[in-house]
């Protein structure tokens, strides 16, 4: 009787072991496929995430998302000066391309800076408000304007349209997000704006 039981036991153990190995292998395969699918599905999103989202248009596209779409269709990925070396490296790794230096036709690296309006010189023409891609400038017609520091992306699109040249780009450490940001996301996501 005893040898018979031990025989069954051995079979049982070996069987269970094989089953476990199979389950593990299947799990790994599932994970791998899932990952690969994930990459293919969201290439534009992943490129977009690597871009700095300053919306400055120095790459020649109206915003970061359009440029991400263009990159995914084969455009060069070295046209983003505000992203710095970090973005270039990240994009090269993501796209499996050799690292190329920044395209000098699209500007140069520079430190993060925010726009500051010299407020006594402002005439209230609202031109900078229209130029600002993230609504970071506050003001009304014929009234003084000001830049909300914590919202400014440093894109310097407001400098050019100012008729009295009263906007400077001041070097600045990147501001931390304001305390109301979570509230912002909470209220504005319900408006149907997709991120």
């Amino acid at each position: 009787m005893l040898p018979l039981i031990s025989h069954w036991l051995t079979q049982l153990i070996i069987g269970a072991g094989l089953l476990l190995i199979c389950v593990y292998a299947l799990q790994k395969i599932y994970q791998y496929v899932h990952q690969q699918l994930g990459i293919q599905k969201s290439l534009v999103t992943r490129i977009n995430r690597a871009l700095p989202q300053t919306q400055c248009g120095q790459c020649g596209h109206p915003g970061c998302l359009p440029y991400a779409r263009a990159i995914s269709l084969g455009e060069a990925s070295n046209k983003c000066p505000p992203g710095g070396l970090e973005t270039i490296l990240e994009l090269a790794e993501l796209l499996n391309e050799p690292v190329r230096g920044l395209d000098p036709a699209h500007g140069q690296f520079r430190d993060f800076s925010v726009a500051v309006i010299r407020e006594d010189e402002c005439i209230g023409c609202t031109k900078c408000i229209q130029a600002c891609p993230v609504d970071a400038i506050l003001g009304g017609p014929k009234l003084m304007h000001t830049v909300i520091e914590s919202e400014c992306t440093g894109c310097d699109l407001c400098v050019e349209p100012c008729p009295v040249d009263c906007i400077d780009m001041a070097n600045h450490i990147a501001p931390s997000l304001s305390q109301t940001t979570p509230l912002y996301f909470a209220t504005h996501n319900s408006l149907g704006v997709s991120t």
């Binding site: 700095p52 989202q53 609504d135 997000l177 408006l191």
Partner: peptide, 20 residues
Amino acid sequence: EQSLLRSDYWQHRFQFRQYR
């Protein structure tokens, strides 16, 4: 992490402006 959060926020503001 902060810069990623910030870029998310900027992107959202940009899209909200276009929506507006």
